[in-house]
């Protein structure tokens, strides 16, 4: 049965008391087996919450307080991922470092098991392969790198993007991984040959002109549970592609954030108002070429909208839990909302 509704379960908060503003969220990840949620936020450490901990009320805010762990020396943690077996947490920082932290019951070790300078620029994306053997990273140096997950030795550095790489994700079967960058490109990489299998133009790359420019190019990428759909979110729009061909299948005005549910044909997207949609892929209307061969726009994201969550703030980082029953939505004000998907 596909889910039919979402209910807000609880709010998580993080604050170490330092006077420097809220710890705005950037990415969230659920532990695959433990009731633990991790978040990369505006800090050099990772925010960690026990989802079963009691909520407390401080200054009219009732929330589950979190802890800060997995410290980088400076900068901010820009990306993180938990290994499929739940034993490792990888963090990438603006300090250029990639760190591997052992997890014990979801609790990170005090010191990293591995700590390397991974990129000549901010480490912006990290993703474990489905078998846990490899880690892919993307950086502000435009490089994509593949690492052995056990010791963080470099398998290969890949070139293909011309802008800051912003996100990376594997296909569920491990046959390929996908990267998105500020150059407006989505690249699908063959996991065996480590060559670009498909280059998809998402667009939206810009020169960041003026006071409040839209995000340049691709900000987030994700792949559906069956590996057939690939979604990319940028500054103003969301596009869904056929992962096998790169053909545009659907589009939506949701911006910046996107993730698919692991258990059903459900997609969440958007940075201020989050749409959660039970999509109907057979009803997608792919983009067609006109007489001159120019590709038009695909149809809207067909399906049933389960919820439109107006956070009153930006959602910055979103992910479903491994069983699909929870949706975590990071917020700009240093909180994460956890929604129950039923």
């Amino acid at each position: 049965m596909p889910p039919t509704k979402l209910t807000k379960l609880k709010t998580l908060s993080i604050d170490d008391g330092a006077k420097r503003g809220p710890l705005t969220m950037a990415q969230v990840r659920f532990h695959p087996t433990e009731r633990v949620l991790f978040a990369a936020c505006a800090d050099r450490r990772v925010a960690v919450w026990n989802l079963d901990a009691k909520e407390t009320t401080v200054k009219n805010l009732t929330a589950v307080p979190g802890a800060l762990a997995c410290a980088h020396a400076a900068g901010w943690v820009r990306c993180l991922d938990v290994s499929p077996n739940g034993k490792w947490l990888a963090t990438g920082g603006s300090d250029r470092r990639l760190k591997l932290w052992a997890l014990d019951g979801g609790k990170p070790a005090d010191k990293p098991a591995r700590d390397i300078e991974a990129h000549a620029g901010w480490v912006e994306a990290v993703a474990f392969s489905p078998d846990g053997a490899l880690v892919v990273t993307g950086g502000a140096d435009t490089a994509v790198k593949v690492w052995n997950a056990t010791d963080l030795t470099l398998v290969k550095a890949l070139t293909g993007h011309t802008g800051f790489v912003r996100d990376a994700v594997w296909l569920p079967d491990g046959s390929a991984f996908v990267t998105g960058a500020e150059d407006g490109k989505v690249l699908v990489w063959n996991a065996k040959t480590l060559a670009v299998a498909r280059a998809i133009t998402f667009g939206g790359a810009n020169e960041q002109f003026g006071q409040n420019p839209a995000l340049s190019g691709v900000h987030r990428v994700h792949v559906s549970r069956d590996g057939k759909l690939l979604a990319a979110a940028g500054g103003k729009a969301l596009a869904v592609f056929d992962a096998a061909t790169g053909a545009p299948l659907a589009e939506d005005k949701s911006d910046a954030q996107v993730c698919f549910a692991p258990h059903a044909d459900v997609l969440a997207a958007g940075s201020n108002s989050v749409r959660v949609v039970a999509f109907d892929a057979p009803k997608f209307v792919p983009a067609k070429a006109d007489k001159s061969g120019k590709l038009g726009s695909p149809g809207p994201l067909a399906g049933k909208e389960l919820a439109q969550i107006k956070l009153g703030d930006f959602s910055l980082g979103m992910r479903f839990s491994a069983d699909g029953k929870l949706l975590g939505l990071g917020r700009a004000d240093g909180k994460v909302e956890v929604w129950e998907v039923a």
């Binding site: 006077k19 420097r20 503003g21 705005t24 505006a42 930006f314 700009a332 004000d333």
Partner: peptide
């Protein structure tokens, strides 16, 4: 400002 604000992306 020294403070980093959460009015959206920081």
């Amino acid at each position: 400002t020294p403070e980093i604000l959460g009015q959206g992306p920081p």
